[in-house]
């Protein structure tokens, strides 16, 4: 398992990086944490002619909160975000999902930008970005643009990013005050790709659901935002019957693939089970908003 030959560049600034991407875009790959890319290269499933290592670009790994938005540099290590007190306080849904991304050793190197750009159909971070209506900023030699989560994920391992673009920042809104949250997933083993995963946010006002967010991973080529299920919930009082209806709506909204670990039918079924359980748990965490 030795990779094919490649040329290696190590830019020190974002400008240098996007210049290299402009030159090599189609033949090049960005190396961030390497936790997905390097195995693909070692197995020769991917043979990029050029590797652009962005790990030494200063300032790309910063984490800030401003005006209720968490701003992560693309190079923010997953483990750093997982353990950040800001994330714990303002977006515990993200923290809970991060805990299930691979294993700690992988999260020590893996980055938020890398995971999102890689767009694995069973990734946690892509579902979180979808659930919370996050967005990414991408830079290329031609300029800067913002891509909303709803527009970002195209299909398996494919985002709307051009090969010459580099994610520089990820923005995730903090949870609303008093919001309850839950991340639940089923995997064959701790740390494995989710067979199905659900992230839920609930805001309760005067005893009824004011805001509901449900996003799933592992149930299709991209993360699924279960809009129909969300609309079923808003304006109603929480109840087990309501959760069951939401679970059915989620099942209707997903068309998972089967593989040797779990059939499509299982994933669809479990997506509903997890939705119910996550809604229950999210409710238990809500604090009535003013």
């Amino acid at each position: 398992m030795k990779p094919a030959r490649f040329e290696y560049f190590c830019p020190r600034t974002v400008d240098e990086a996007v210049d290299l991407l402009a030159r090599y875009g189609d033949d090049g790959k960005v190396l961030a944490g390497g936790q997905s890319l390097v195995p693909l290269m070692n197995m020769r499933l991917a043979r990029p002619a050029v590797i652009i290592d962005i790990n030494r670009i200063d300032g790309l790994g910063d984490l800030r909160e401003r005006n209720g938005i968490l701003r992560f540099g693309a190079l923010t290590r997953q483990r750093a975000a997982e353990r950040s007190p800001v994330v714990a306080e303002r977006c515990p849904l993200l923290r809970d999902a991060l805990r299930l991304v691979g294993h700690a050793q992988i999260r020590n190197r893996g980055t938020l930008g890398g995971s999102i750009a890689h767009a694995d159909p069973a990734a946690e971070l892509t579902a979180i970005l979808s659930a919370l209506d996050g967005e990414v900023t991408a830079r290329s030699a031609r300029g800067t643009r913002t891509i909303a989560a709803a527009d970002l994920f195209v299909t398996y391992l494919t985002t709307a990013l051009d090969p010459r673009e580099l994610i520089v920042e990820i923005r995730i809104p903090a949870l609303s005050p008093g919001a309850g949250w839950s991340w639940m997933e089923i995997a064959r083993r701790h740390g494995d790709f989710a067979l199905a995963g659900v992230g839920v946010v609930l805001v309760i006002r005067r005893g009824t659901i004011a805001e509901a967010r449900i996003a799933l991973t592992g149930v299709g080529p991209t993360p699924v935002r279960a809009g129909a299920a969300e609309r079923l919930l808003v304006g109603h009082a929480p109840s087990d019957t309501l959760w069951t209806e939401a679970a059915e709506a989620v099942r209707a909204a997903v068309t998972p693939d089967g593989d040797i670990h779990a059939s499509a039918e299982y994933r669809k079924h479990v997506a509903g089970v997890l939705t119910q359980r996550a809604l229950r748990e999210a409710l238990s965490r809500t604090k009535e908003a003013a």
Binding site: M43, R44, L45, A122, D257, G258
Partner: peptide, 14 residues
């Protein structure tokens, strides 16, 4: 070959 042994998770869908 190689891709079948490593990519079974996504082969059908892709």
């Amino acid at each position: 070959g190689l891709i079948a042994g490593v990519g079974q998770r996504m082969l059908g869908g892709v």
